[in-house]
Simulated scan of single mutants.
Amino acid sequence: MWYYNKKLQYPVKVRECNPHLALFLIEQYGGADGELSAALRYLNQRYSIPDKVVGLLNDIGTEEFAHLEMIATMIYKLTKDATAEQMDAAGLGGRYTDHGHALFPENTHRTPWTAAYIQAKGDPIADLYEDIAAEEKARATYQWIINLSDDPELNDSLKFLREREVVHSMRFREAVEILKEDRDKKTFF
């Protein structure tokens, strides 16, 4: 059971309307390596992973939904005052004609989110390596968005998200080591 705290995990401030920057953030909203994909991947994988690490997948999967909420807030704040012309100039014209200023899970190329973005092998170690890769790809994407942004307030929130990806990667690495010991002792597989 989840309890919703009606505040963001970390404050999101945006200096000014910037649909061009929102375009890049859309990747983290509905792209293959974005927050929605991560949340669903981890919460799905937890059903076929040993009890020793199931809580980790539950905790990180839940936190990824909090990250999704932060990204949604960023996109909304960056586009809410944008005109149709500004949206079009930023490469969001087609998105605007389909959704206006509403959020929609898709990547920067307008490909809608798909369950094909999430992986679940059923082998705990293989799944955790997939999770490590997902966290490292998200970390890299956040860094690249920071490199493209000139908004120091938004970058503060993006740096928070980037660092959380690092922490998640480290936690998944620790889980791999725990499960490798069990595999060597033949306690699962």
Score class of each variant (00 low, 15 high):
Ala126Arg: 08
Tyr142Val: 08
Thr114Arg: 12
Thr114Ala: 11
Phe104Lys: 10
Ala115Arg: 09
Ala134Pro: 02
Ile125Ala: 02
Arg110Thr: 00
Tyr117Ile: 03
Thr108Cys: 04
Tyr142Pro: 04
Thr114His: 10
Tyr129Thr: 03
Ala116Lys: 15
Thr114Lys: 08
Thr108Gln: 06
Ile118Tyr: 00
Asn107Glu: 07
Pro105Lys: 15
Asp127Glu: 13
Ile125Asp: 04
Ala120His: 10
Ala140Tyr: 02
Ala134Ser: 14
Thr141Ser: 07
Glu130Tyr: 12
Pro124Val: 00
Ile132Pro: 06
Leu128Val: 02
Thr108Val: 11
Glu135Ala: 11
Ile125Gly: 02
Ile118His: 03
Phe104Ile: 04
Glu106Tyr: 02
His109Pro: 03
Lys121Leu: 05
Ala134Gly: 12
Asn107Leu: 07
Lys121Asn: 12
Ala140Asn: 05
Gly122Ser: 05
Asn107Phe: 03
Ala126Asn: 02
Asp127Val: 09
Glu130Phe: 09
Tyr142Glu: 11
Ala140Gln: 10
Thr114Tyr: 06
Arg139Ser: 02
Thr141Tyr: 09
Trp113Asp: 08
Glu130Thr: 12
His109Trp: 13
Arg110Trp: 03
Leu128Met: 10
Ala138Pro: 03
Tyr117Asn: 13
Tyr129Met: 09
Asn107Arg: 05
Tyr129Phe: 11
Ala140Leu: 11
Ile125His: 01
Ala138Ile: 02
Phe104Trp: 14
Ala116Arg: 13
Pro112Phe: 10
Glu136Leu: 08
Trp113Asn: 03
Leu103Ser: 07
Arg110Glu: 15
Ala116Leu: 14
Gln119Leu: 14
Lys121Phe: 06
Ile125Met: 02
Leu128Glu: 01
Ala133Asp: 07
Ala115Cys: 01
Pro124Ser: 02
Leu103Cys: 08
Thr111Asn: 15
Phe104Ser: 10
Ala115Trp: 11
Tyr117His: 14
Glu130Met: 10
Tyr142Thr: 09
Tyr129Val: 05
Ala133Tyr: 07
Asp127Pro: 08
Ala120Pro: 00
Tyr142Ser: 09
Pro112Gly: 03
His109Met: 15
Ala115Leu: 10
Arg110Cys: 01
Pro105Ser: 15
Pro112Val: 13
Thr141Glu: 11
Thr108Phe: 02
Asn107Trp: 05
Asn107Ser: 07
Ala116His: 11
Ile132Leu: 14
Ala120Cys: 07
Asp123Leu: 13
Pro112Ile: 12
Ile125Arg: 04
Ala126Ile: 06
Leu103Gly: 05
Asp127Phe: 05
